[in-house]
């Protein structure tokens, strides 16, 4: 029995569920946090989404059938939670999700939890100009260095589409950097 299968079994059995969940938290909290943070930008929002993600995982772990790897399933939940969060906030402010993200990125410079230099700030601004899907692909490939195969599993799309998407994202970012 692999570690992951064992963890899933413990998560799905009542007597071991809580201790297994703590192990799951230890294993994935940081990876998922950074994945979410790159999408929602602010720490407070990332914290909210991370908590929602793990609560959803806890509630739905019994429905996990093992069709995909556990980390893909976790990443998928985190991604969906972050997208829902962005869209909900944009709707509340009566702007498009692109406009909402632009507003957020323009506040980044004043954020106490952003310690990046001018180049990193510029890169974040460039990423914010991309459509949501390309942002995701770029962040997962560029910063997290995930394999296309794993990304395809998480985002439920083909490797070819992801490669094309990443290529376009890089071109757009290069263009943004040179023209700004």
């Amino acid at each position: 029995m692999t570690n992951e299968t064992e963890l899933i079994t413990r998560l799905q059995e009542k007597p071991t569920k809580e201790s297994a969940f703590r192990d799951l938290l230890k294993l994935y909290k940081e990876r998922l946090y950074w994945h979410i943070r790159k999408m929602v930008i602010s720490h407070d929002d990332a914290d909210d989404v991370l908590q929602n993600t793990f609560i959803k995982v806890y509630k739905n772990i019994d429905n996990f059938k093992g069709d995909s790897q556990l980390y893909s399933w976790l990443y998928r939940i985190a991604t969906n939670e972050a997208i829902t969060f962005i869209n909900k906030n944009a709707k509340r402010k009566q702007v498009s999700s692109e406009e909402y993200q632009n507003t957020i990125i323009n506040q980044l410079e004043a954020d106490v939890y952003f310690e990046g230099d001018a180049i990193q700030l510029k890169l974040q601004k460039a990423i914010a100009t991309l459509p949501q899907k390309q942002q995701l692909v770029f962040n997962m490939k560029y910063f997290d260095d995930l394999k296309y195969k794993d990304m395809a599993d998480i985002l439920e799309t083909s490797e070819g589409a992801l490669k094309a998407s990443y290529h376009i994202a890089v071109k757009k970012i290069e263009h943004f950097l040179t023209s700004n």
């Binding site: 938290l25 950074w34 943070r37 720490h43 908590q51 180049i119 990193q120």
Partner: peptide, 30 residues
Amino acid sequence: VFNTKQTGFSVPENYFNSVEDNIISHLPKT
């Protein structure tokens, strides 16, 4: 830009130590 591989984002001190208990306290009682 393309060699930084760093986002520049940071987190409050001890955030990752406290977030576990925070999440556990919000779990539904089963």
